[in-house]
Every structure is written in C-alpha cells, then in structure tokens.
C-alpha cells in the first residue's frame, strides 16, 4: 500500500521526458461485430503520473489501448503523441491481457533471442535478466521451458518483464495483475515505482481498486465512449459516473454479505 501510494504521488517526475496525447474524432469498429463502436471525439492528456484506464467488460478498454499502442489502426480519426524532442515518435510498448496467446508453444530462450534480434540491441539480454530477477524468475531455470510449462502468474510476470526491458516511453499494461498473487503484485508495485522515473505508465484494468492504488488520473470508458477524464477528487464528487461503472458496488456487496453471515452465525 505504501509503495502504491508513493507511485500515485508521482515523485521525481522531472527526469521523465514530458509527453502528451491528442485524440481527435477517433472511430473504431470490428468488421464482424456490428454493435460495438469505439468513438472518442476529442481528448487531450498531458502524462503526469500513472494513468488508469477503467471500464466494465466490453467497454472497449483493450481496443482503445491497442489503438493507443498502434497495434491496430482506427477506421477514422487519429491519435497524436507529442514528446519534448518532437523528433521521433515515442516508443510505446503494449503488454497484452492474454500473454498466454503469445507465449505458449515457443521455448522461452528462442522467444527472447527473437526479441533481441528484432530490437538490434544485444544489451537487451542483461535488461531482460534484470527484470526477470525482480519478478523472482531465474532466466537459467525458465529458458529451456515452453510457455505451457509456466504457471499463469509466471507467464504474466515474464510478459511484463519483457515489456519493461524494452525501455518504452509509454508502457501500457493491460490487466497486469491477473494471476499474479500477493508477492507478484508487490513486485509489480516496486518495479512500477522504479520504471515511472524513465517511462510513462498506463494501467488498463476492470479492477478499480488496483487502478485507484496506483494511478493519479483516470479515464473511464463505458460502451465505447469516454465518460470520465480526471483525478480522484473529481471522480469522488461524481456519483452518477461512480454508479454507472460500479465503483462502490463491490464494497457494498461485501459489507452486506459479511454482516448477514455474521447475523446467521450468531
């Protein structure tokens, strides 16, 4: 909790290159799914501390974050990033919601070799080993294994470690804590505290408690529309939005459930 709070406070941001994003008339829909449409008319954001993208399932979080990362292209409209240098497009790394889909069926060593070759950076080996170590993964132990021989939590830690090693300007972590467990979450918080000094971070999650712990600013998507862009103070005052996306519903449910359980026990 202490570490999460420290990340949220956003200390030492001065060493980080400033970056902003401007989104105009963004429109996306899947070819074979007529109903869903992601539509954001206008959005400008200056990255300043970890950003949280929250929404219910089907709200378009993963689609939006993949558009941000350039993994998919919009049907129309654009997303423009601006950095201090203005000379280059920022490096954006997207760590996917389902790393299993990428990491199964391939030996870990072969995959890492491929990443290093494609990046053209041999120093990447050291960086990858470093981040694997921070997530309690020993390269020598896992290198000969295939993805399916790792547990769900190990696969996710591997995927995040690989993303971090690429030194991105913007790191987008899609549902990063699924399957991580208590220790893995603590390790992630520690690493995020370190990485935010050199990279901007965007956390995408359906778990608002996680986003609240880490992030300073929140984007909330609902049915393909951005319905909130602001900090906790603004969200705290906006009861309508909180109700629509169920910000308080879990704690209400659990309070009622445990109270009734206690009454039955007595």
């Amino acid at each position: 909790m202490v570490k999460a709070a420290a990340i949220r406070r956003g200390k030492n941001l001065s060493v980080l290159n400033s970056m902003s994003v401007k989104i105009e008339k963004l429109n996306y829909r899947y070819d074979n799914d007529g109903e869903f449409q992601l539509k954001i008319d206008e959005l400008t954001h200056e990255f300043n501390g970890p950003l949280g993208l929250y929404g219910l399932s089907g709200s378009g979080k993963t689609t939006f974050s993949r558009l941000m990362a350039g993994v998919i292209s919009p049907v129309s409209g654009n997303i423009k990033f601006e950095t201090e240098s203005r000379k280059r497009h920022p490096k954006i790394v997207y760590s996917p919601q389902f790393p299993e889909n990428i990491l199964l069926g391939i030996r870990i060593e072969d995959m890492i070799q491929r990443i290093v070759m494609e990046s053209g950076r041999t120093d990447l080996y050291g960086s990858i080993r470093n981040y694997l170590g921070k997530f309690s993964l020993d390269y020598n132990v896992i290198k000969g294994k295939n993805g399916y021989e790792l547990s769900g939590g190990e696969l996710r830690r591997l995927a995040i470690a690989l993303s971090l090693s690429l030194s991105p300007d913007l790191l987008i972590l899609d549902e990063p804590t699924i399957g991580l467990g208590f220790q893995g979450k603590q390790q992630l918080f520690t690493i995020l505290e370190e990485i935010r000094k050199s990279s901007h971070v965007m956390i995408v999650s359906h778990d608002f408690r996680l986003i609240r712990k880490i992030c300073r600013n929140f984007w909330i998507l609902h049915c393909g529309r951005l319905i909130f862009n602001g900090d906790w103070e603004a969200l705290r005052k906006n009861e309508k939005i909180r109700k629509v996306v169920g910000i308080d519903i879990l704690s209400h449910f659990l309070t009622q459930y445990f109270e009734s359980k206690e009454q039955i026990a007595h």
Partner: peptide, 20 residues
C-alpha cells in the same frame, strides 16, 4: 480456477451470488 480474474465488478457479484 480464479474465476473472477477477468470479470468486471457487476459480473463478479453475479458470480458470487451464483456461488452462494
């Protein structure tokens, strides 16, 4: 096996009610 991992809060509560 961690059935709530990918569920949003409304679906999560739906599953909790189902389990009860």
């Amino acid at each position: 096996d961690e059935p709530c991992s990918f569920l949003d809060v409304f679906s999560q509560i739906h599953l909790y009610r189902k389990i009860i």
